[in-house]
Design a protein around this nucleic acid. Sequence first.
DNA 1: GACCAGGCACATC
DNA 2: GATGTGCATGGT
Length: 210
Amino acid sequence: MYKTLFAYYGEQHWWPSKSGMQWEIVAGAILTQNCAWRNAEQALENLSEHGAETPQQLLALPLATLRKAIRPAGFFMQKSICLQEVAQFFIEHVKEYTFPCQPVELRARRKRLLSIKGVGKETADSILLYAFNQPIFVIDAYTRRVAERHLNILQAATLAYDILQKIFMKNLPNDTQLYNEYHALIVRLCKDFCLKQRCLCAPVLHDGHA
DNA sequence: GACCAGGCACATC
DNA sequence: GATGTGCATGGT
């Protein structure tokens, strides 16, 4: 599946950040929770217009201003608090997170991210993979649909997050770049072929053609 | 007006 | 562990 998608689409260059800054990826991961990416992007642009392009600058914004800026991404009451907490976390830990680490350490980092209210497994893994280049596979709604409909993983749509993640990671090389591309390609596939919750129109993948 | 979009926390059983 | 609910906006 990966090879076919890669041959068809090529590199996806994720995370789709405009500035390429690590913090923008982290903030984007929170803002895009259960909302369309374009809305998260609008929220990021609003933050930028308010001069909040770093965690320090975000923390300097009054809460009401922060909420107004991220409004397009929805859930602004919760996301604003979460962004502040993650900004604080980022300032405290960014240096030690910049370099690759041992699996034990990676689990510890994940646990610390998960202790932040508003950061669940998908968000924590997105941050670790896309902002900090750690080899961890992201499971999202798209991945579940593709896993159930095309990879024949039974009940993938409702399978516990960690279990589905293990299925992917045990059957793939431990390769950050591969995890990065594969997830991005799955999202691309779903967007191209209308793999919505109730939409079963699915592409047939064979011989390098979707 | 219904459904959906790169979730999450919390309550309840 | 599994399921249901509230959170909120904007596009189709």
